[in-house]
Design a protein around this nucleic acid. Structure first.
Length: 593
RNA sequence: GGGCCUGUAGCUCAAUUGGUUAGAGCAGAGCGCUCAUAACGCUUUGGUUGGGGGUUCGAGUCCCUCCGGGCCUACCA
């Protein structure tokens, strides 16, 4: 049995996430976690809300709540939605947890001891009206280059010119509109990532197709039950190319500011000691957020010995055989390939480094981007209001933006759900159970033997299963969905060829054997489909009146798990089809504006 | 500006990394079946792989160039 640590990128606390966020990290991570658990491996699957930073403070102010209360409330909202989508986290934590405060400060102290922290004095824009320093993006003004009046302090959206906030004509706060701005001197801590460039570069190289670092320890252990998963493939090009760009672009990897002048966050300390001159500052959210991956495990183990979570994270305390896989959207890649590893490596302590980073492109909505501000697209709460989670899970996973940005259209969604889920899988369950009920009653029928058709089906399923497993092991999400669907289709083809409804008239025993196989196939489908559509899988198992969720190793054996005489019930329709009227109504409702 | 990704059938995507005649699903057409959610199965139409040039015995795949779509560019996270 292997041990698999899985983390999903942390959703930012500010508001409800849309389907693009979901498919880019949490959902594929859940697919992988459910699959690995089903294969019998020990899985720790973690996620948490990312709560610090300026946007959280502003969102709280807008909601008229203290930021701590706002974050606590939104954590609850996001947790409920995650549960609604069947995301099977072992723990859903918070980056604001005491565990993360302590660990973030601990890492800062270790990095300081290693000489990897610089104190840098710099000038930043302060807004008197807002009572805060303004990040460059929160300063607006007229672009000196093109005259656009709503240029931001970092870049003009109109002419794309890179700007410095002091370049802007008539600068004002984007928060309040106030022009009462001044430049103040402030001191910040910088992580000297540039010192670790060589080390990081070599590490990234080892994960590329020509590298040799992707055969992790967990995959090299011999004859176990269950067998260890196959070696991890090279990292996605998307992951390594973004990392390379940041490593090599311009002067190479830049040192990074890891503190901010904010109230809400992890106070700057060196371990448990004060940090002179840093009394009113907090760590930058991108410093503390990835550390929450570790702290989240500590939260999970609250009230139990530290060894419980350290065996997942400390290579000196049992984590050396852990396989660690991260899931995220492409915007998160630099922080996971460089900044966080720099924190880990720079600490000179034996923390577990990530083994595989699965990154995703973006999901677009009907010809444009999802937009929170314009209410354009589908958000997690609205999605669950109109349809069960499995419908979304199936479509999103089978269309995951792995190679390029992909697009949600209602036509495609309707066609995919109706055909794949209702017609191919749902109808299979329906036709088999109803036929059995009418001819043999609500129990697995006895009599008859398998013949050539059954042998051919078993061989085909065995082959298809191997293909499905290979894609899931490689985290090829779309291809996994294709293989799963092919398994469903095989059942329908078999039924058509076997035609038990005809056979029954001449040879009821033979028909009984066919239906016995088909009923067993429903259970097998439930087990195999559960990582994608857990709720429907549970319904199928309930209808088959079984708790046997063993992953099929030998298909022949798996297809005899339900013996003759085993009672079952005909389930309700598994997947209701989406009608044209519904589709059109939703299309209108979610068009935004 | 720089970097990366991407363009394959009406639609959504493959193509074992340069190797026979570019394949699936959906949509369309035809046939079969009647257990089933008007479901299922079989057959079938549909391609100058964005345009042009080059390398090669051989190019969807490699190189150059042009066109289109997208992302990133370090103080939003």
């Amino acid at each position: 049995m292997a041990r698999i640590l899985i983390t999903s990128a942390l959703p930012y606390i500010n508001g409800i996430k849309h389907l693009g966020n979901l498919v880019g990290s949490q959902l594929p991570a859940d697919l992988y976690a459910r699959y690995m658990r089903a294969r019998g491996h020990e899985v720790l699957f973690l996620c948490a809300t990312d709560e610090h930073g300026t946007p959280a403070e502003l969102a709280a102010a807008k909601a008229g709540e203290p930021v701590a209360e706002y974050c606590a409330r939104m954590w609850g909202v996001q947790k409920d939605l995650a549960d609604g989508f069947g995301l099977s986290f072992d723990h859903y934590g918070r980056s604001s947890s005491p565990e993360n405060h302590a660990l973030t400060q601990h890492f800062a102290g270790k990095l300081f001891e290693a000489g990897l922290i610089d104190e840098v004095s710099e000038k930043q824009v302060y807004s008197n009206a807002d009572g805060r320093f303004l990040p460059d993006r929160y300063i607006e003004g007229t672009c000196p280059n093109c005259g656009y009046e709503r240029a931001r302090g970092d870049q003009c959206e109109n002419c794309t010119k890179q700007l410095d906030p002091t370049d802007l004509i008539d600068p004002r706060s984007a928060i309040s509109g106030s022009t009462d701005l001044e430049v103040r001197e402030t001191k910040h801590l910088y992580l000297r990532q540039s010192q670790l460039k060589q080390r990081l570069s070599e590490w990234i190289s080892s994960k590329e197709p020509t590298g040799h670092g992707y055969f992790d320890d967990a995959s090299e252990q011999g004859n176990e039950t269950p067998p260890a998963p196959p070696p991890l493939p090279p990292w996605p090009i998307l992951t390594t190319s973004i990392a390379r760009k940041w490593l090599n672009d311009g002067d190479g990897l830049q040192d990074r500011g890891i503190t901010r002048d904010l109230d809400w966050g992890v106070p700057v300390r060196r371990g448990k000691e004060d940090w002179p001159g840093m009394e009113d500052k907090v760590f930058y959210v991108w410093f503390d957020a990835p550390i929450e991956y570790i702290a989240c495990a500590a939260e999970w183990a609250r009230g139990r010995p530290d060894s419980e979570w350290e065996r997942w994270w400390r290579t000196d305390k049992g984590a050396s055989d852990v396989r660690y896989v991260q899931f995220m959207g492409k915007d998160n890649v630099p922080f996971h390939t460089l900044s966080f590893p720099a924190t880990i490596i720079g600490s000179r302590e034996p923390w577990k480094l990530v083994d595989y980073i699965k990154s995703f492109n973006y999901l677009n909505y009907d010809g444009g981007q999802f937009s929170t501000s314009q209410g354009r697209g589908i958000f997690m709460d609205a999605a669950l209001e109109i349809l069960p989670a499995d419908y979304w899970r199936w479509w999103l996973l089978s269309h995951a933006p792995e190679n390029s940005d992909s697009e949600f259209t209602w036509e495609n969604f309707q066609a995919s759900v109706n055909k794949d889920l209702a017609d191919v899988l749902g109808n299979f369950v329906s036709r088999v159970t109803k036929f059995c009920l009418s001819k043999f009653g609500e129990a697995v029928p006895a009599g008859g033997d398998w013949g050539a058709e059954e042998e051919a089906l078993i061989a085909r399923l065995q082959k298809g299963l191997a293909a499905y497993e290979a894609q899931l092991d490689a985290m090829e999400v779309r291809k996994s969905a294709t293989e799963l669907r092919a398994l469903w289709v095989a059942g329908n083809e078999y039924l058509q060829a076997a035609a038990p409804w005809s056979v029954f008239k001449e040879d009821p025993d033979r028909a009984a054997a066919q239906i016995r196989l088909a009923l067993n196939l429903i259970r097998v489908y439930a087990v195999l489909s559960a990582p994608f559509i857990p709720d429907a899988a549970a319904k199928m198992l309930a209808a088959m009146n079984t708790l046997d969720t063993d992953w099929p190793g030998d298909m022949r054996a798996a297809l005899t798990a339900l013996p003759a005489g085993h009672g079952f019930s005909v389930p309700d329709v598994l997947f209701q089809k989406i009608t044209d009227d519904e589709r059109e109504a939703w299309q209108t409702r979610f068009s935004g504006g």
